[in-house]
Computed example of a mutant assay.
Amino acid sequence: MMLIYKDDKSNGKYRDNNASGFTLIELLVVIIMIGILGAIALPAFLSQAAKARQSEAKSFVGAINRAQQAYMMERLEFADSVERLDLVRNKKSQYYSYSFVVTQTQGSVVAIPLVEDTGKTYTGAATLYQNKALVKTIICESPQQGSEIQKVPEWDATNSALFCPDPMNNITN
């Protein structure tokens, strides 16, 4: 059944009562629901992206610790750069900068986020102990994102252990 209606706005157009489609209210409800779901999902996605960046730093600091151990056993000194470790060809990272701190008995690395408040700071060390016969390693993590703690782990001779600088936490497995 076709109805003809006429008012000032319709200009005499035909409207079919059997026509299918969505009303403006239905479309608005769907758009609002999509917006709510997006508002819930976006923070979860962003936190996962930050965890992925932090994972890069953790694994690179761990790889440097292992490479420092091998370098020390071969050359009786710690390397002061990634190039000397021959660890990776491309030491550039989009998210972290890495710096080395080397002494006669310890080779340390500090990973600092390049963009403020986007990642945690990590530091690691390989240290000689027991008359330079053994090497011990540690990886430390800052408690919150965006902190730029540039201290390296220290050796406690009385306990024969490495410890993280305050307020960092030991995350070595």
Rank of each mutant, 00 (worst) to 15 (best):
Y14E: 11
E141I: 02
L162T: 01
N11M: 12
V102P: 00
E148Y: 15
T103F: 13
E141L: 07
L27N: 06
E141N: 05
S81R: 04
L114A: 01
L37R: 08
T121C: 03
G107A: 12
C140I: 04
F163T: 03
S47F: 08
A133T: 09
R53M: 12
A39V: 05
I64Y: 02
V115Y: 11
M72P: 01
I40T: 03
D16M: 14
N11G: 07
D8E: 14
I149D: 03
A133S: 11
E56D: 13
D117G: 05
K151G: 11
A41D: 04
A63T: 15
Y98V: 00
I4W: 15
G119M: 07
V30W: 07
R66V: 15
V30T: 01
M2D: 12
E154V: 03
E116S: 14
D156W: 10
A63K: 15
D7L: 10
T23E: 11
I25T: 08
G107R: 02
Y96G: 00
S47T: 08
S160E: 09
K58V: 00
M2S: 13
V115W: 10
F78Q: 05
K91C: 06
Y98W: 07
N169I: 06
P43Q: 05
K91H: 10
A70S: 13
I34M: 12
A125V: 01
F78K: 02
A70L: 15
R89M: 14
A133K: 08
K91V: 03
K6C: 07
M168T: 00
A133M: 12
M33C: 02
Q106G: 01
L24K: 11
M2N: 13
S93N: 03
L76H: 14
N159R: 07
S93W: 10
T23C: 06
S81L: 09
A52S: 04
T118D: 05
E77S: 11
L128F: 04
N170F: 06
G62H: 09
I25V: 14
F60Q: 09
P43C: 08
K58F: 12
K91M: 05
V102G: 02
Y71C: 00
N18D: 10
M2Q: 13
A79D: 04
P167W: 13
A161Q: 12
R84Y: 12
S47V: 06
F22R: 00
E148H: 15
V109I: 14
L24S: 09
L46W: 10
G21M: 04
I40Q: 06
N90T: 01
V135E: 02
N131F: 07
A52R: 01
S97K: 04
E116P: 00
I4E: 15
Q150D: 13
F163D: 05
L128W: 06
E77T: 08
D86P: 06
I34Q: 08
